[in-house]
Design a protein around this nucleic acid. Sequence first.
DNA 1: TATGGTATCTGCGAAATTGCAGGATCTTTC
DNA 2: GAAAGATCCTGCAATTTCGCAGATACCATA
Lengths: 230, 230
Amino acid sequence: MCLECCNQSCLINNCTLDWIEKISSKKNTPHYPKNQFIFFEGSLVMGAYFIKRGQVKIISSNINGKEQTVRLAKEGHMLGHTAFGLEKYSIGAVTLSESEICFVDNRTLQEAFLENPKFTIEVMRFYSRELRKSEIRTKCLAMMNNEEKVILGLLYIAETSNDQNSNQTKIYLSRQEIAQIIGTNSEQVSRVISNLRKDKLLDTEDRTIVLHDLEALKATLSHYCIAIEY
Amino acid sequence: MCLECCNQSCLINNCTLDWIEKISSKKNTPHYPKNQFIFFEGSLVMGAYFIKRGQVKIISSNINGKEQTVRLAKEGHMLGHTAFGLEKYSIGAVTLSESEICFVDNRTLQEAFLENPKFTIEVMRFYSRELRKSEIRTKCLAMMNNEEKVILGLLYIAETSNDQNSNQTKIYLSRQEIAQIIGTNSEQVSRVISNLRKDKLLDTEDRTIVLHDLEALKATLSHYCIAIEY
DNA sequence: TATGGTATCTGCGAAATTGCAGGATCTTTC
DNA sequence: GAAAGATCCTGCAATTTCGCAGATACCATA
């Protein structure tokens, strides 16, 4: 039931009570394990997804199967509607952690948009924010060298991770997964992480990366004027 | 007057007649010469811009003043609203050709959104499409080598150019401007353009680049599965 | 038409990135 | 707990990209 949902940041909360109940009765909320596809590139668009809990990567591949992660999403984010107006997804989505994700079909969503201006406006604002973030990312990936890109990637992962309450952010992604976020390869990521560890800018516990001072990492990227969001 | 506007693709056309007239009476439509700032990074957000005619680049700079073009826009596109909810622009916008651009203030826009669900939905879809395009661009810039990036840039410029009616698309941007779109430098762009001219994939007339076969150029990038949009 | 300033082109050495290879470490499975 | 498989780390050579510099071509102004 949406009305009892623990996730206050869900966009559906911007609908009227009637509509929240209506959507609630039509949605379903499967439980996804880690590394599970939510939808594939090329598959039919049936509706949209709202992340209740967990972390998700949005990916796009070239013809050889090489994957690029184009966006990370966490609870409160909306997925899959990017392809609105198209019949098929041009991107895919995969869970990075165990997740709960609500699905709402196209028709219900369309009616909700027409009758809930506040909801529609907030969804518009969400896309507007994501576009701005994507554009800042474009700039950073275009201008930065490898080391800076890796730091950017780590901060981006931290930003979209769920347990950022403590002063120790832990990153469980593989070097390969991090490389796909910033458009490089796993060797480069390894090298940079080794250097950052020597410089005391992060720690590692086995393969887990531990960020103990986000501000110090952000300071290394201050040339790029990205104080607000990563 | 919006009702007599030549630009059918303007998002404002999705409002009711009443509202089109209301917006029409409140907007203004300055005439911008080439290379004119529409708004600056860091300046206050007063409203949104709707391009009636012309081509615009959205830019973001680092602290040394080095510029990256993060998006191109043409007639029918909406600008400046990316910063919705923020007080200041995180990006800037500059005309690439002589342009007419309508300005609508925040308050009028907000009321229009609340009372014109169709308008709001179309604006949402616009941002959704732009986000998808930005993400495909992220992937391409991350995966492509220099030559491929230059071709991508040329196709992107052609796509957002106004005179794509003939089978000869002419590009009047400088090598430096092209370089800023794809995140490289003017020398690299020169080199690639020379090679493409030798391979008969484009012509040059003085400094103007002439694309006479867009399909052939697109074919060189087919590995990246970007058939739909650039 | 002449002239100064700017943009473009291209060669070349420097720097950064890539990709392979081999060894070390960690995880999984039995 | 041992073995097999996967991931991670790091050195090195090959490749790509960068950025300076000089030559050429173009544009604006007088």
